[in-house]
Design a protein around this nucleic acid. Structure first.
Lengths: 148, 148
DNA sequence: CGCCGTCTCGCATATTTATACGCTGGAGTG
DNA sequence: CACTCCAGCGTATAAATATGCGAGACGGCG
């Protein structure tokens, strides 16, 4: 069985089931008639850009969609935000240097309907809402997020 | 030093430098005055949702952006696409069952300017282009991608 | 105060992953 | 054909990661 065929099987296995070790993957493949050692799988996984997560191996390209568990977003947010202020219909979020882009992405992913969009610099994010009231509401919720 | 302070340091370290093992992370933290064992880091990394990639530990939420190396996208595409056909201004891409969403995402990420957008079902993707000519061109390039 | 219950963490170790090395088979070349 | 290369892989093992267990810290609560 060719390398490419094997890698296809790996991708489809990994996407249908939760595989959490290379040994397990090796067993599953054997059950399907493909016989490889863990060493080869280690190499395959790197080539396919699969990463190990708490929920098994995942395609790195897909991690955002499949897995946007809010818990982690909040975890990240609470760790990286340093200040939150409202100004007119904007909320200004300060972060540790360099982390604004990550935090902004997390904010986007929260899916809050009163967040119209975000713009991130290096350590500052502008969160755009529709009006002053929404800006205050967002600020409030972000503050609560910081110290649960 | 509190757990939360330590986790903040981990996030910022991991985002500024390339850290590829927990031992290395432990050393870097020690240099900054934070002293922890590998075991604790293993737990921290899971809580922070950091995954190990060939380029070091990365925030799972960010993997798309930081790391969209086209090589891997193409690898994924070539593995999962089974058929490509053009129809009017659309390109119809067939994939292995269940893989259409992944492939569609990869197609989006290619950044081809003649791809207006994609819609994915379970094993079929509609790729929308502006006209017949673009559809043919996209089809051609996708076919080449499949067998290099 | 004394007695839980809960967190957090280190230690030791089990488990998992990566890799150095060497073999093999097929492609390309003269 | 004979020869060289090299991708691909297994074996053995090194390296890295996860975890069972218990200790200490801290906050209620009677």
């Amino acid at each position: 069985m060719s390398k490419s065929r094997r890698q296809k099987e790996i991708l489809s296995l990994v996407q249908s089931d939760q595989i959490s070790s290379q040994l397990e993957l090796s067993r599953r493949l054997r059950a399907r008639g493909t016989n490889v050692t863990q060493a080869t799988l280690s190499r395959d996984l790197r080539e396919l850009n699969l990463v190990k997560t708490a929920q098994g191996y995942k395609l790195a390209e897909l991690l955002n969609r499949s897995n946007g568990s809010h818990h982690h977003l909040r975890q990240v947010l609470s760790q990286l935000m340093t200040e939150v202020a409202a100004a007119s219909n904007l909320v200004v979020v300060k972060t540790f240097p360099g982390n604004a882009p990550s935090v902004a992405l997390s904010l986007d992913n929260l899916g809050w309907k009163d967040i119209v969009g975000t713009v991130a610099g290096d350590d500052t994010i502008l969160v755009v809402t529709r009006d002053i009231t929404q800006a205050r509401a967002v600020k409030k919720r972000l503050m609560e997020l910081r110290s649960p």
